[in-house]
């Protein structure tokens, strides 16, 4: 009996000497929550309060506006192109980096992260310099009546740039941790390369892949700076949801601006929920 009582005292004692007194814990939790409340939760709440400030009918009108619907369509289109491309790229990059040893690998990893360290404004600028009228390909494109900048292709390109590293970044550490034994076993047992990828690698990385795709999608739909530079801001034609929000806000149409913004805030909440659910799967997997 005495032994069964003695055992649990050790963690209890440890928790006592390596934690703070109760009052201090309360104070620290209080300060942390106050800071988070003021800086994160208040703005989130404000989006929805401002969106409904002038009533539900104004809210629905703002969303049903043809320009708003056109912006939603363009945002969905840009994400529908950018996310799959960056997904394929992410898998290819992670396959090469995680499964093989080669020279220049760490340089390649650093270069993959470049888009995250570049200002979104510069991300837009580089495509103006390439495809704008004064740009490298500008004269040739003008001759052939192809518009990239201040048109939809430019928006898609800028979106691809800013969401470039998301999937690769999730997959590389995950695949490095998983090693190559399972794939080698499949190959030894006679599976082809593609079979090995589809039936061994892909099931192993599915949660990491989904995680990366969700983050990539959230940024693709919400990007503002880069898209703003290449868009040209033509209502109904080259406006994405964030750009439409900006226009409404600058026209002092705050209720409509927040109504449309609430769509993006809702997307953010869905993203966070999906992220924490998938995160649990990912950590359970290891």
């Amino acid at each position: 009996m005495s032994q069964t009582i003695a055992l649990p005292t050790r963690p209890a004692l440890s928790a006592q000497v390596t934690s703070e007194p109760k009052w201090l814990r309360g104070v620290l939790i209080g300060i942390a929550l106050l800071f988070l409340g003021a800086f994160l939760w208040l703005p989130l709440l404000a989006v929805f309060v401002e969106a409904f400030r002038e009533g539900v009918s104004v809210y629905w009108q703002a969303l049903a506006d043809p320009d708003a619907l056109a912006a939603v369509r363009l945002t969905l289109l840009a994400a529908a192109i950018a996310v799959p491309l960056n997904l394929v790229f992410g898998v290819a990059a992670a396959w090469a980096i995680a499964k093989f040893e080669f020279r220049g690998k760490s340089l390649l990893i650093t270069l993959l992260d470049l888009p995250f360290s570049v200002s979104p404004v510069i991300a837009g600028l580089i495509y103006v310099l390439m495809f704008g009228l004064q740009g490298w390909f500008g004269p040739w494109l003008a001759e052939h009546h192809i518009r990239i900048v201040f048109a939809v292709p430019g928006i898609v390109l800028a979106t691809i740039f800013v969401t470039f590293p998301f999937v690769a970044r999730e997959l590389i550490p995950l695949m490095q941790e998983q090693g190559v034994e399972e794939e080698e076993a499949a190959l030894v047992l006679g599976a082809s390369g593609w079979q090995t990828f589809w039936h061994v690698t892909l099931p192993n990385i599915r949660w990491g892949l989904l995680y990366g795709v969700i983050l990539c999608n959230a940024r693709a739909m919400g990007e503002f700076g880069a898209v703003s530079v290449v868009s040209g801001h033509i209502r109904g034609l080259t406006n994405t949801i964030p750009l439409h929000v900006e226009i409404l806000y600058n026209e002092y149409n705050a209720a409509s601006a927040f109504a449309v913004a609430s769509l993006l805030a809702f997307l953010a909440l869905v993203t966070l929920a999906a992220k924490s659910l998938i995160g649990r799967h990912l950590h359970g997997h290891h």
Partner: peptide, 25 residues
């Protein structure tokens, strides 16, 4: 759990939305 998940809000909330909201508050 919710407090932890919401820490990532600035990553998930589009910057333009954060911008107009902070300006209003």
């Amino acid at each position: 759990g919710i407090v932890d998940a919401l820490v990532d809000l600035p990553f998930a909330l589009p910057t333009a939305v954060a911008g107009i909201t902070l300006a209003t508050i």
